[in-house]
């Protein structure tokens, strides 16, 4: 335990290979959604459109970074008995603030995301990084780790949302990319893609693709 803390300390704000690994590992090799299986719920429910996925990603990135920073700063003072609830209180406050800001700025998107913004609180990815990493590391690596994981999460979210929006309605970010047969074009939209189950198929196939590309990710039974 103490070696972990010690190793991080001397190079507090330098950005060396270790820090880079903390940041980039969770993008593919240790992706929160497809490998660690964390934060899956929101990835499925709000990925019908890219703009929703982007807003959700921004929320998770900000909340995860600030939560990890705060938890890491007070990590030596948190009583073990109330550890989880303190982390939840910090995360819940940040999510509430994000929800309020969203409602004051992007009102129509906030209507669409409704309860799913609130569910960032129980996004196991955010709590998982706070409890699993920030509790044992100094602030700078903790923030990097949160950022890396949140970016890995955002990556999958946006890939899934782009696939679904493109195949489902022929649009990307609301712009018509594939001309629909309805409007005289050639693309017949795939209605399945706008329905919730398609998110599961897309992620399942994505996992398959990733594991074929990087065989090291295959589960050992």
């Amino acid at each position: 335990m103490s070696t972990v803390i010690g190793s991080g300390r001397p190079a507090r704000f330098t950005f060396g290979p270790n820090e880079r690994a903390t940041l980039t590992d969770p993008l593919i090799a240790n992706n929160p959604i497809t490998v660690q299986m964390l934060g899956v719920c929101s990835a499925l429910a709000i990925t019908t459109r890219v703009d929703n996925a982007v807003v959700m990603s921004v929320g998770v990135i900000l909340v995860a970074m600030i939560a990890s920073l705060a938890v890491s700063l007070i990590r030596e003072r948190i009583p073990t008995a109330i550890r989880i609830i303190v982390q939840l209180a910090i995360i819940a406050s940040l999510v509430t603030v994000f929800d309020q800001v969203l409602e004051a700025t992007f009102y129509e998107i906030s209507l669409e995301l409704s309860v799913f913004v609130g569910l960032i609180i129980t996004n196991c990815m955010v709590l998982g990084r706070a409890e699993g990493y920030a509790m044992r590391h100094p602030p700078f690596p903790a923030v990097l780790d949160a950022l890396g994981n949140a970016l890995g999460y955002a990556l999958i979210l946006i890939v899934v949302a782009a696939t679904r929006e493109l195949l489902g309605v022929g649009k990307l970010l609301g712009f018509q990319v594939l001309p629909l047969t309805r409007d005289g074009g050639w693309y017949e939209p795939n209605g399945l893609m706008v329905l919730p189950p398609s998110a599961l198929f897309v992620i399942g196939l994505l996992i398959w693709a990733m594991r074929t590309w990087w065989p090291s990710l295959v589960e050992k039974d």
Binding site: I78, P79, I82, V86, A89, A92, T96
Partner: peptide, 13 residues
Amino acid sequence: FALVVCLICAAVV
């Protein structure tokens, strides 16, 4: 500690 955390969170929110 719990009280202080509650106060800070409540103030921010």
